[in-house]
Computed example of a mutant assay.
Amino acid sequence: MTKKRFDWTLSNLFAALLLVVGIGLLLWLLITSFGTRLSVEAAVTAGVLLLAGLVFLHPTPVTILAPMIGLISLSAGYATYFSAHSWFSALVAIVMMVAILSYGFNLRQALRRRHSSWSH
């Protein structure tokens, strides 16, 4: 199995923009409005931006995928904690997001591999 080379296509540039904006939004919420309703909305928005960025990034390097899945999951946990005020709920949200995202991106890779074997 050969390793795919990463190219800067329009899709990858858009993905990079989404990832940078999502991380910037997370940093902004942590610095300016930690624990407020606005920060909960910003955390959810940042998580969606990061997820969209991962979807557009092809091929997704593991060095980017793993930390982004962590940030998305922590964003979900942050939003859950400050919405429900429950550490247990936040922990469940983090674990569920890690499981769903890991499975989803692994499934995408498996489908790509299977599709490439169909074309040959």
Results as ranks from 00 to 15, higher is better:
residue 35 G to P: 06
residue 42 A to P: 00
residue 31 I to V: 05
residue 112 R to S: 14
residue 61 P to C: 01
residue 92 V to A: 14
residue 56 F to P: 04
residue 59 P to D: 09
residue 111 L to S: 13
residue 83 S to P: 05
residue 66 A to D: 07
residue 94 I to C: 13
residue 42 A to H: 00
residue 95 V to N: 11
residue 115 H to I: 15
residue 86 S to E: 06
residue 25 L to I: 09
residue 43 A to Q: 02
residue 50 L to W: 05
residue 100 I to K: 09
residue 86 S to C: 06
residue 19 L to C: 04
residue 57 L to Q: 06
residue 57 L to T: 07
residue 1 M to S: 10
residue 83 S to N: 08
residue 16 A to W: 01
residue 46 A to P: 00
residue 106 N to D: 14
residue 99 A to P: 11
residue 83 S to V: 01
residue 9 T to A: 10
residue 64 I to C: 03
residue 36 T to A: 04
residue 56 F to Q: 04
residue 110 A to Q: 14
residue 43 A to P: 00
residue 83 S to T: 05
residue 62 V to L: 13
residue 52 A to L: 14
residue 111 L to R: 12
residue 53 G to N: 03
residue 42 A to V: 00
residue 35 G to N: 07
residue 51 L to I: 10
residue 79 A to I: 07
residue 40 V to C: 06
residue 8 W to P: 00
residue 82 F to C: 07
residue 113 R to I: 13
residue 64 I to Q: 02
residue 117 S to I: 10
residue 33 S to F: 03
residue 114 R to W: 15
residue 108 R to T: 12
residue 8 W to H: 04
residue 33 S to A: 12
residue 55 V to C: 04
residue 39 S to V: 00
residue 57 L to D: 06
residue 59 P to F: 12
residue 81 Y to W: 12
residue 55 V to W: 15
residue 25 L to P: 00
residue 90 A to H: 10
residue 82 F to I: 02
residue 120 H to Y: 12
residue 11 S to H: 11
residue 112 R to W: 15
residue 70 G to K: 01
residue 11 S to D: 13
residue 120 H to G: 14
residue 31 I to A: 03
residue 14 F to W: 11
residue 107 L to V: 10
